[in-house]
Amino acid sequence: MKTEITDFKGNKRIKITGDIDMHTSPELREVLLSIIKKSKNQCVCVDFTDVTYIDSSGIATFVEGLKAIRASGSRLFFYGLPESIMEIFRFSRLDRVFEIFRTFEDAFGI
């Protein structure tokens, strides 16, 4: 798994490439929580377009991130989820909890 962080109009975009599992989720957790910790009234946007796999460890990381970001006044949202990963969020009933958009443009309303 690789993560790439870019700025977009004062917001943060995290692009993830590869598998998120028990092996890689600690690294993702470190990246995500570090960005959230520094964010204030910002959007942290996760690009799932090139995520090839996610397991419960990865999902737990994002749930933890969501709880942390709510305390900071910022927003966490996702876009570009492949259908197989969207299905996992639906099954876990987390599609109702996370803000999920189809594309980056939809997410930022541009």
């Binding site: 397991d55 419960s56 737990a60 990381t61 749930v63 933890e64 099954f91 876990s92 987390l94 909890v97």
Partner: peptide
Amino acid sequence: DLNDIKPGGLGIHF
């Protein structure tokens, strides 16, 4: 419980 949103506890469901 799937309605109790917290980290962990999904593996057995999967």
